[in-house]
Design a protein around this nucleic acid. Structure first.
Lengths: 239, 239
DNA sequence: CGTGGAATTGAGGCCACTCAAGCAGTGTGG
DNA sequence: CCACACTGCTTGAGTGGCCTCAATTCCACG
């Protein structure tokens, strides 16, 4: 089984054997983090970028009043801070939401790829563009959708993203995030996140218990969420 | 005066005379759009990317119930859809919020740059990474900040971004967007956007009348907005 | 069997929403 | 030159979604 990163890239364009080799050679040491651990500190200037191999990770920002907002969610195969390669200074923290396994790539190696492997560089660029596309969708979700629709949208997105890296089984997947974390993703209070999840359950589109989500009615779920997967860039084509 | 795009890139790293030439040679024909015009359609597959020379542009998505959410705002020197180069299919529309002047770059030319000019390619990549960084900040803003703080944050961001491209005069700048558009940016109703602006005016941090914003008390404004410019990537350093 | 974290429920309040009307500035046609 | 539309800003009133605080239940685990 290829690494989830290769699965993700190969979903969007052909990654040659040679390019795969370059990528895997770029991987340095592996790190493990416990759920709740801070992986990259807000304001830091990392010299490496991180690739998630197992677990779920969030990009988070803590506000003055102590509240937290999670601005991105990551599944296996995602880069956690590829943007740090060029942005240099982190404007948010990166936090493990479950136990995680992570691989490290030196920025020097990334720079070398940009100097010698144009197509692979474009695919890494694409990786960050998909990040951005997801961000925009979240902005739309947060700005104009009801709490219940937001939950539905998140479930749709997670299902599709996890399916690409073979972390779904049929119409089900495990999603071991507490409702406290969910609330920080959706920009809601814990109480209201809970009630919104309940309402979505009552709709009959999903069942969700003990970190296990089953999509009982995909059509209904998509309808509630107004979900259109275009923003996830799922087409295989030359880039 | 160099083009605003060069101003923006040169703020973050040295752009050589040769690189500037490559960029300006990439510019194709110019287009004009009236305020309110659709520049790129949601779902389309453009073969070019657009650079804004004059005016203000938004990336927007219309929901089923007819409401609109603007997920990004663009000032002169910004690429409007550089992400379209690799994402291929637009997952949102691009709309002129004022009268605009725009330059066109063929994707083929961009591809050639990625094949032959690694550093310039990284700077274009950086451009899209800053986009993404702004998206994340907006998510935080929308998820966890009060309406008034949101307005304050937007004013801070717009001031800094416009200052880089010389569109500010002292502590003032023109911001010719209606409150209807403002509401679509902030994810609020028009009425509440209006009341939030009024509250910010009452605080004494700004005056805002007839599309002209003056920042009377930058420190107070930053304080209300919890504004930290790190996410705008304003440091000049090798990338 | 006690403990602690997470999920759930209840009650009350506030922030933001909708609907609707009034006002001000600007452009247009008679 | 004025009546008039038209658009955008402002205000009022009433409603509802989401919030806070607090208590209770549930469940995994030592």
């Amino acid at each position: 089984m290829p690494h989830s990163l290769v699965l993700q890239l190969s979903k969007r364009d052909l990654i040659t054997a040679n390019e795969q080799q370059v990528l895997l050679n770029a991987f340095g040491r592996q790190l493990r983090f416990k759920a709740g651990a801070e992986i990259v500190a807000d304001g830091s200037r990392p010299m490496t970028s991180l690739i998630l191999s197992e677990g779920i990770v969030g990009r988070a920002k803590i506000l003055a009043n102590g509240t937290r907002q999670i601005s991105a969610l990551h599944v296996p195969g995602d880069f956690l801070d590829l943007h740090g390669f060029l942005l240099k200074t982190m404007a948010h923290g990166v936090v493990a939401l479950t136990d995680c396994l992570i691989s490290v790539v030196d920025h020097a190696v990334l720079k070398n790829i940009t100097e010698t492997a144009p197509h692979l560089s474009r695919m890494l660029w694409l990786n960050t563009l998909i990040d951005g596309s997801i961000h925009r969708e979240w902005i739309v979700r947060m700005g104009r959708m009801s709490a219940t629709a937001q939950v539905a949208h998140l479930v749709c997105e997670m299902f599709v993203r996890l399916e690409i890296v073979n972390r779904t089984v049929g119409r089900t997947f495990t999603f071991p995030l507490s409702q406290i974390v969910l609330a920080d993703i959706l920009g809601l209070s814990t109480v209201h996140a809970n009630r919104s999840i309940q309402e979505l359950r009552r709709s009959g589109a999903i069942t969700w218990q003990n970190s296990r989500i089953e999509i009982s009615d995909w059509t209904m779920l998509v309808d509630i969420a107004e979900f259109d997967s275009t923003y996830l860039c799922l087409d295989f084509e030359p880039r």
